[in-house]
Design a protein around this nucleic acid. Structure first.
Lengths: 225, 225
DNA sequence: CTCCTCTCTTAGCGAATTCTTAGAATAGGG
DNA sequence: CCCTATTCTAAGAATTCGCTAAGAGAGGAG
């Protein structure tokens, strides 16, 4: 998880809150605590956290109330709920009022950190990449070239997304191999070339300007001109 | 909790009942007490409470019996069970029978109030999710596809609701597993595939447009197009 | 106790995808 | 203009992926 990420913890049990505070600080995060729902809501407005850890049982306004209020206000901040182990897994579960993940107490702080990381990664991924008239919706995996919708296979999609995340840069075959195919994939062939070929065939319909350029001796680049 | 909310307490221990009566009155609630199961049932019909606090140990018809009868009658009134400290089997049992929460004696009245508040808020939640001509009433768990009513099992419903809360988004099998089946369910098979299959069979009757799309190599998405 | 429903597992088929290979095409230097 | 290194393409082989049928096991209802 990126250092400096703002995390809000809303938890009435001071010892747990304190523990998380220390752990998170140790991990380089910026942390803020609130001990009840009302203050939690205030803190969200004021502190603008990138992710919230929210206990479900709180004095006064409880976790569910906080969550509901937040979502009604239109906030999309990712929220990880803390629930008691024996608190009716199914019910709590179905009260997916818009929480993004949950963890049952007791839990290990590593687990919590891992979950937070996953959560942030997931929500960060929710964006639209644009290169010229090509747009890639990373949440729905929709690809559009102008008004034309394009269907890609998983590998093709991964390759294109990676290139779109590094637009205008020359990407060597070995870089693409390691980032898209993975480090220990025993591929030693010209798969990259082949897949660039596939992409071109699908992306550049008749008359459209080519998006993937070959830089002889160096690699490929995704760019408009 | 809103003043004027009707709360029924079914509890044979008069001193506890009295204590709750005073506490609740103090909080502005309208309270009614019954001291055994039979009278409890009658009171529900007559008093029409918005929430019920139900002791599990009662003379004659016990709490479990009351709960069972109620649910069989189709009542969905939220119920919080009171159980003895070590009666864990009871918990599991009553939660399966359709209780919404429980509290072990002895408990603090603040705790009870907080739980009741949470319960009411949760059940007040009356949201309808819409995707194309599919609508999901999260309060009653009713599913409609156009004019056709659809019956789902618990698991099918959970899966569909989660997908409906993340429409158009590609949801990986592992995400669905962790969010619908739970983190620590040792499932590592293709249950997700199987349940998507069940849903499709029920949702897409002859000639209707498919709602669940497979994104090969990535997961599933609920979307109209 | 028996029947029924629900959940999960397993295994196999068919199809889509991924990767390999080898030869054709192309660019760029001399 | 020719040669060579490099890139591209077509076609097929190997693999993976998703769907479904069938059934075991658990649990509740009658």
């Amino acid at each position: 998880m990126k250092p400096g990420t703002r995390v809000l913890v809303v938890e009435d049990d001071r010892s747990i809150a304190r523990l998380l505070e220390l752990e998170f600080e140790h991990s380089g995060l910026v942390i803020r605590c609130a001990y009840d729902g009302e203050n939690g809501l205030d803190a969200i407005g004021e502190f603008d956290p990138e992710v919230v850890v929210l206990d479900i049982m709180l004095p006064g306004l409880d976790g569910v109330g906080v969550l509901k209020t937040l979502r009604q206000r239109g906030s999309r901040v990712p929220i990880l709920m803390l629930t008691a182990r024996d608190a009716i897994p199914d019910k709590v579960h179905s009260l997916n009022l818009g929480a993004d993940d949950y963890l049952t107490k007791p839990f290990s702080t590593e687990e919590l950190l891992a979950r937070l990381g996953a959560l942030l990664r997931r929500t960060e991924e929710d964006e639209v990449l644009q290169i010229a008239d090509l747009s890639i919706d990373t949440a729905s995996r929709d690809i559009w070239r102008g008004k034309r919708r394009i269907e890609l296979t998983a590998r093709e999609y991964e390759l294109l997304e990676f290139m779109a995340r590094n637009p205008r840069r020359v990407l060597s075959r070995s870089l693409l191999l390691s980032r898209v195919w993975g480090h220990e994939s025993g591929v030693e062939t010209n798969v990259v070339d082949v897949y660039v070929g596939y992409l071109r065939k699908k992306l550049d319909a008749a008359g459209e300007v080519a998006l993937i350029r070959t830089i002889r001796g160096a690699g490929y680049a995704l760019r408009e001109s």
